[in-house]
Design a protein around this nucleic acid. Structure first.
Length: 628
RNA sequence: GCGCCUGUAGUGAAAUGGAUAUCACGACUGACUUCGGAUCAGUUAUUCCAGGUUCGAGUCCUGGCAGGCGCACCA
């Protein structure tokens, strides 16, 4: 039972008796007492002034006096301005500590059948995972843990972006330049190998575009369609008129795109996509082979991150379902067809735009596929309560539209879809750009932080007697823990800066700092005898009181993190707890204390802090060691 | 142009509408050489600007300013 729910009815009674008016729970604001004032919990008295007809101090005094008489755990009070600060007794806090030691936990509010699906990672199959994915993956995984802690069942899922023109690009490049290279023959990770050909395609496309642009500029159009030539010339004219550098650049970009679209290599890619959609056996086989390489590579990375998925969805399956749903919606006039055959939805009544859901040639777009995927998921799991989509905030609009379309299609469950939107990860040098080679590769980064953890641990760690395997596991735990913590401690919706130096740092508000505290507690407990129940008569040091209060706030913190889908709240809480523990550790002596009841209490307190650290870090997908 | 998000020490982050805005990194000053020093304490701000609501605003409302993102027959 937490302090607030304990005090609330008593306060209501006193107010009723004193002022003859009932106050609801919202009127009674209880909050933590700021540390510059004496007290533990504070009642804000401003809302009662109207009925007390006295100034804030007098009102506070009145209520405080009554509370002191009525409740024995209140041992004192003081009023500053409109704030009534209440002090609780040591015995109450000791009792709370004992309750935690007995394994008291907040009751789970949900039934175990309550099912949620969390989508995260959802990579492209032709680019290896990078830093941006790491934030996504750690967030999605952590939110899954948090929902599970609340008593929900969670299906971890991703939508694999395995179809479309971009896939054909790496396939074509591999055909052209690959020389039958495989992960085995090259020793490259599958995703890296495919990524390499994607880059090769891009290079080839650019040089072809350059060449063709030169030809066009010399009015050499070959057998080019008249319409296209006209379009090109029109753009040229517009570009010539523009004086503003920026506007000129924009038009030139458009011209380049037009040229780009008519290169030999692009034509071949489009042809390949068409063949793929027709399930041409040769193309289909190549597609399957190269995708298998990528999945193998991704699996290795997920394993290194200690992240697992329960169910995968593939766009290559769900886009068909999406198309069917659009066809159906067309009959019921949810969608409409334009003259060129393309299908749209009109969202202007909702204040949004018209949105394309099917191309003129009948092929699916990104949105079509997402409609299909959502539908498929609720078919597969009829008891599904909601879906959390972990996707970057550049897609805020897309998801707004998607959820609206699903609602319009008559799916009630669309209300339970949530877009867990997060900000981009910047580097000190600016934005990550694959063109400029400033992308931070996920595998490289993980290897780097683990290496750093190894270096630091060998320098100052306590690892004598550990086997090689144990040591390696430890380095992994520290390096990866530091990285996860670094990316999770920031509010998801905020854009964040990734400083490679700071991410491998082991001081300050970092994962390893928290892990270190846990290791220290473990070794402390290893030296201790068996713990006895807390003696409620001992008096508490200020840091002990603060620590116990913090411990009792843990369940509430989990609730908040779940409500807001924000692991950052847990990270901050854990850091506060650890800071307070270190302060406690510094200011009181544990084993040198003469009173055995105090020694016992301090050890028990340490043990509970250790348990909460382990639990909360676990909710962030981070393991904590007993030695490091 | 329209829409969404974000503006808090040099930097990165906290703060259900509550008090004198909380931390870390860097910098500077100091403690202790202990039960694990990967420790602890201290110094470091017109919360972008202007109005408004409120007993009370970093937080809510209105209007600016700055940055990011989106408004594709791309994904």
């Amino acid at each position: 039972m937490n302090l607030e729910t304990l005090l609330l009815p008593a306060i209501q009674d006193i107010l009723k008796e004193q002022y003859g008016q009932s106050f609801s729970e919202e009127d009674i604001q209880l909050q933590k007492t700021r540390k510059e004032f004496k007290g533990d919990i504070t009642l804000v008295v401003f809302p009662f002034l109207k009925v007390s007809r006295k100034n804030p101090e007098q009102t506070g005094e009145e209520i405080g006096k009554k509370l002191l008489e009525a409740i024995d755990i209140i041992k004192g009070y003081n009023t500053v301005k409109g704030f009534l600060n209440l002090e609780v007794s040591d015995a109450y806090l000791l009792g709370a500590l004992q309750a935690l030691a007995n394994g008291a936990k907040a009751e789970k509010e949900t039934s175990p059948t309550d099912l949620f699906m969390v989508e995260f990672s959802s990579p492209n199959t032709n680019k290896p995972l990078h830093l941006g994915h790491l934030r996504n993956i750690f967030l999605g995984d952590s939110v899954s843990h948090i929902l599970e802690e609340k008593g929900h069942k969670v299906v971890r899922t991703q939508i694999v972006n395995d179809r479309g023109i971009h896939i054909c690009k790496s396939m074509l490049a591999w055909q052209r330049f690959g020389d039958e290279e495989t992960p085995e023959s090259s020793g490259l990770k599958g995703d890296k190998l495919v990524g390499k050909y994607y880059v090769k395609f891009d290079k080839a496309l650019r040089s072809e575009t350059d060449a063709l642009l030169k030809k066009w500029e010399a009015d050499d159009f070959g057998e080019l369609n008249h319409k296209v030539i006209l379009e090109y010339q029109k753009l040229k004219d517009v570009a010539a008129e523009k004086e503003d550098e920026k506007a000129k650049k924009a038009i030139e970009g458009k011209i380049r795109e037009l040229v780009n679209n008519h290169t030999q290599i692009m034509t071949e890619v489009k042809d390949m996509l068409k063949k793929w959609e027709e399930k041409d056996p040769q193309i289909y086989q190549l597609w399957k082979k190269m995708n298998a390489w990528v999945y193998q590579g991704f699996d290795e990375t997920y394993q290194a991150m200690q992240v697992k998925f329960d169910k995968l969805y593939f766009e290559s399956d769900t886009y068909i379902t999406g198309k069917e749903l659009v066809e159906k919606g067309l009959e019921t006039s949810i969608f409409f067809k334009k003259d060129d055959g393309s299908v749209w939805i009109d969202l202007t009544p909702e204040g949004l735009d018209e949105k394309l859901v099917l191309r003129g040639d009948g092929t699916a777009v990104y949105m079509t596929q997402d409609i299909g995927t959502a539908y498929q998921r609720f078919m597969d799991y009829p008891e599904l309560n909601g879906v959390v989509y972990t996707v970057g905030n550049e897609q805020d609009y897309h998801f707004k539209v998607l959820f609206l379309i699903l609602q319009k299609l008559g799916f009630n469950w669309a209300r339970n879809c949530f877009h867990l939107s997060y900000g981009m990860v910047d580097l000190p040098s600016g934005k990550m750009k694959s063109r400029e080679g400033t992308v931070v590769d996920a595998d490289d980064l993980i290897a780097e932080v683990v290496a750093k953890a190894k270096e630091m641990t060998q320098e100052r760690g306590h690892i004598e007697g550990m086997s090689e395997a144990e040591k390696n596991r430890l380095y992994q735990m520290i390096g990866l823990g530091g990285l996860k913590y670094y990316l999770l401690k920031v509010d998801p919706k905020k854009r964040m800066l990734f400083d490679p130096q700071e991410s491998v740092d082991l001081n300050g508000n970092t994962g390893p700092f928290i892990q270190y505290t846990h290791a220290r507690i473990s070794s402390l407990l290893a030296k201790a005898d068996e713990l006895k129940p807390v003696d409620l008569q001992v008096d508490l040091h200020e840091t002990e009181r603060e620590l116990i209060k913090l411990l009792t706030e843990y369940p509430e913190t989990i609730n908040l993190a779940a409500e807001q889908y924000s692991p950052a709240l847990l990270a901050n809480y854990t850091y506060d707890l650890v800071k307070m523990y270190n302060s406690f550790y510094q200011s009181v002596s544990i084993f040198k204390e003469d009173n055995p009841a105090k020694v016992n209490m301090r050890l028990l307190l340490s043990r509970e802090v250790g348990k909460v650290i382990k639990s909360s870090m676990g909710l962030m997908g981070i393991e904590v060691p007993d030695r490091m």
